[in-house]
């Protein structure tokens, strides 16, 4: 299921403004890739360009190529909607649908697309997804209760369950723990470790310890100044980035001597 992503010379624009410049990287299948860097360096923009979510902002477009197992995600005629079915996403703030129960939230990908499925099929899907997100034991007795009634950490795991229920090939996570307490963060990090056997995971994080703990590969983004585009400075195995990076800027950033 897990697929690899090849990015070549990717420039991302918002209208005339170039937000990210010349990113070339390969994201390996069934591995966790962390993207770190200072605020505004374009790592979230880059992450969102992988499932074309940045296009919800009018005027956004990309140059260069981004392929998923060889399929160009930006080929003419490729529907962003179909891209997003292959590349799921978990957001910074937990965002379960407030009008839906826990059960309906998990199968939201099916329900919102009006795909018909029998009760037994969806029951099985809900249990598998919630087990996959380490949430089943906590919510199995109250699946018909609103998802908004869960705690923040549980809501975030519900959002992960919702994302994996549509069985994507890649899972993008945009600072998934930044709104959570340390215990919920630990739960999510454990979950990431389990999920990487089945999914290619790309995670943006501001927390370098988290990047060091959960990821196999790390990419460091940086920006020269406000108004300049963000760039991928260096990408390597996580332990290399954190112990002996090639670039001085990377070393300054990961050792906290930035700026």
């Amino acid at each position: 299921m897990a697929k690899s992503i090849e990015v070549r010379d990717l420039n991302i624009y918002y209208g005339a403004f170039r937000a990210v410049e010349g990113v070339t990287m390969s994201i390996r299948p069934a591995q966790v890739t962390a993207l770190i860097g200072p605020s505004g360096c374009g790592k979230s923009t880059f992450l969102r360009s992988i499932n074309r979510m940045h296009e919800v902002i009018p005027g956004a477009y990309v140059e260069g190529s981004l392929t998923l197992n060889g399929n160009d995600l930006y080929a003419p005629g490729t529907d962003p909607v179909s891209v997003r079915r292959q590349v799921g996403m978990v957001f910074q703030r937990p965002n379960p649908f407030p009008t839906m129960s826990i059960y309906d939230n998990v199968v939201a990908g099916y329900k919102l697309n009006s795909r018909k499925a029998s009760k037994t099929v969806t029951d099985e899907l809900v249990e598998r997804s919630l087990r996959g997100a380490n949430l089943w034991n906590e919510v199995k007795d109250r699946l018909d209760k609103p998802g908004a009634g869960l705690s923040g950490g549980q809501q975030q795991r519900l959002c992960i369950a919702r994302a994996i229920a549509v069985q994507p090939d890649v899972l993008l996570m945009d600072e998934p723990c930044s709104a959570l307490d340390p215990i919920s963060t630990l739960a999510i990090e454990d979950l990431i470790n389990e999920l990487k056997t089945e999914y290619t995971i790309v995670i943006v994080t501001h927390n370098m310890q988290q990047a060091a703990r959960v990821s196999d590969y790390t990419g460091f983004f940086n920006i020269e100044g406000t108004g300049k585009p963000g760039k991928l400075v260096e990408m390597d195995e996580t332990k290399t980035i954190f112990s002996q990076p090639r670039e001085k800027a990377t070393e300054d950033y990961v050792s906290g001597r930035f700026g």
Binding site: M53, R84, F91, N95, F97, A108, L112, N113, S114, A163
Partner: peptide
């Protein structure tokens, strides 16, 4: 965030 959550599940704009 709710619109984005829906888009990220591969739901089209009008269904969202």
């Amino acid at each position: 965030e709710l619109r984005e959550a829906s888009y990220a599940l591969g739901v089209s704009k009008w269904r969202t």
